[in-house]
């Protein structure tokens, strides 16, 4: 059954847009289907906000520090970090699905598409990020009722920050997924990537406090890209741009996306060396 049209006509930008929409649509369908995943994604940060933050409020005193112009409650401090946590989990879960796809063979469907691989991986990354950003806004909406109320404009200003942070964490996940052969190995990555990244960052405590207790830990937090994702979101929520964080986040995102594209390239990457997807 040869098609009535020349396939070349479908390989242009209109075709790419169709492919991009298809990839986003599938990601959205999957997410909608897994309602418990959405609940888990929402409950996790809310547990931190409702319980952990309430307990910590009494223990941890915060001085006035940018971008805040006054003393803030611990709940307010921790909210941007929890947004970043949502994106971190989403980024890792999205790459988990890549590993799963590779095991089931669904990955092949994606990779035998005639469009370039960088485009397919980029589309996949953007699709995952879109789902993550949506979760962040759902969380911020609930947090508003918990009296975490950044200025209204902050919600808008946070959008590019959330997207950038989501892309960075998704790109890290994408790269990891190329390096991991099996789902079982992924559990280890969760422990060795998610927890250290989250705890050794400015998500839960300001870095200056960290510095008081351990210089080494402070140094680790300072080179953790997650810290910059958190700070970028924190400043954006209060309508300020942390240019340094923006630079770090963009740079790390580009580096990991580049590494993932190389890793998934049949002629250069890990896939070729390791015997291919699903083998």
């Amino acid at each position: 059954m040869t098609g009535p049209d020349d396939p070349a006509t479908r390989l242009g930008w209109a075709g790419r847009m169709t492919a991009f929409r298809g990839i986003v649509w599938r990601e959205a369908l999957r997410f909608a289907r897994q309602r418990e995943r959405f609940l888990a994604a929402l409950v996790r940060p809310l547990v931190w906000l409702f319980i952990f933050a309430a307990g910590f409020r009494a223990v941890l005193g915060l001085s006035i520090q940018p971008p805040y112009q006054t003393y803030v409650l611990y709940e307010v401090y921790v909210t941007p970090g929890l947004c970043a946590m949502i994106l971190l989990f989403q980024g890792m879960q999205s790459s988990l699905s890549m590993v799963y796809d590779r095991e089931t063979g669904a990955m092949r469907t994606l990779l035998v598409s005639p469009f370039p691989r960088w485009f397919l991986l980029g589309a996949k990354l953007i699709a995952g990020t879109a789902v993550g950003v949506l979760q962040c806004y759902a969380f911020l909406a609930v947090a508003w009722f918990w009296d975490v109320r950044p200025p209204l404009g902050g919600y808008l200003a946070a959008f590019p920050a959330l997207v950038a942070a989501g892309l960075m964490l998704g790109a890290i996940g994408l790269f990891l997924s190329s390096a991991i052969r099996q789902l079982e190995n992924f559990a280890g990555v969760m422990n060795f990537v998610i927890f250290p990244m989250f705890f050794a960052s400015s998500a839960l405590y300001p870095l200056w406090r960290m510095k008081e207790s351990s210089l080494l830990l402070w140094q680790i937090c300072s080179i953790n890209p997650f810290t910059y994702a958190v700070e970028l979101i924190r400043f954006a929520l209060y309508m300020r741009i942390d240019w340094f964080s923006a630079g770090v986040v963009t740079g790390v995102a580009a580096a990991f996306l580049g590494a993932a594209i190389i890793a998934y390239d049949p002629s250069k990457g890990l896939i070729a060396r390791r015997g291919g997807p699903g083998r």
Partner: peptide
Amino acid sequence: SRALDPGLTLRQNMAYHAALHGI
């Protein structure tokens, strides 16, 4: 190996594949 998405319907699988080919 089976490469359809088991959670999606036949039509959804077809639509996804078509999109990946720019249709």
